[in-house]
Simulated scan of single mutants.
Amino acid sequence: MSVYEGSVQLLRADATTLAAAGERLTFSDGGEIGREASDRDGLAWVDGMVVAKDWRLDHFARYLARQRVGMIRVDPAVAGLRLSGVFPLDDAERALKALEAALPISVTRHTQYLLWVGPRDI
């Protein structure tokens, strides 16, 4: 649980925990509560965006695929390329095509349900 504004009081039978803005609480299987700094970039999804910082291309494609109907396939030859940026979640094809200018990749739509990301022909 992350807190971005104000504070939250977590009430449990045996304890009360207060989390302030900028904090994130984690819960273990044993019931212990951990406290760490929240990731403000994680809130971008509220605005329909994703913030990628040094992500692998295959990880980015899997993240986008969760937001769409259909599949995104990434050729192993380009899967390990790294990227950073802010991208829309509602249009995976547009997000991936934006990377064509910065990475040696080509994005091809084979059907409305299949996007293929592979090496750019030189």
Rank of each mutant, 00 (worst) to 15 (best):
R68V: 15
R68E: 15
G80Q: 06
Y63P: 00
D54Y: 02
L43S: 08
D47I: 06
S28N: 10
A37P: 03
V74I: 14
R35E: 10
A37Q: 13
R82G: 03
V51P: 06
A52Q: 09
S84L: 09
L81I: 01
P76L: 14
L83A: 00
G42L: 11
L83Y: 00
A44S: 14
V69P: 06
G30D: 10
L83H: 00
M71I: 11
L64A: 05
K53C: 13
E36Y: 02
M49G: 05
R73S: 14
A37H: 10
L64H: 04
Y63I: 03
M49H: 05
R35Q: 11
W55E: 01
D29C: 10
V69F: 13
V51H: 11
D54A: 09
W45P: 03
S84W: 05
R56P: 05
P76Q: 14
G48M: 06
A79T: 01
D41R: 02
A44H: 06
Q67K: 13
A52W: 09
R40E: 03
I33E: 05
V50W: 02
G80F: 01
V78G: 00
A44W: 08
V46A: 04
R68G: 14
D41H: 05
H59C: 04
M71S: 10
D54W: 01
G31C: 12
Q67A: 09
L57F: 04
W55I: 04
V46T: 07
D75M: 03
D41P: 00
V69I: 15
M71V: 14
G31S: 12
R73I: 15
D29T: 10
S38Y: 05
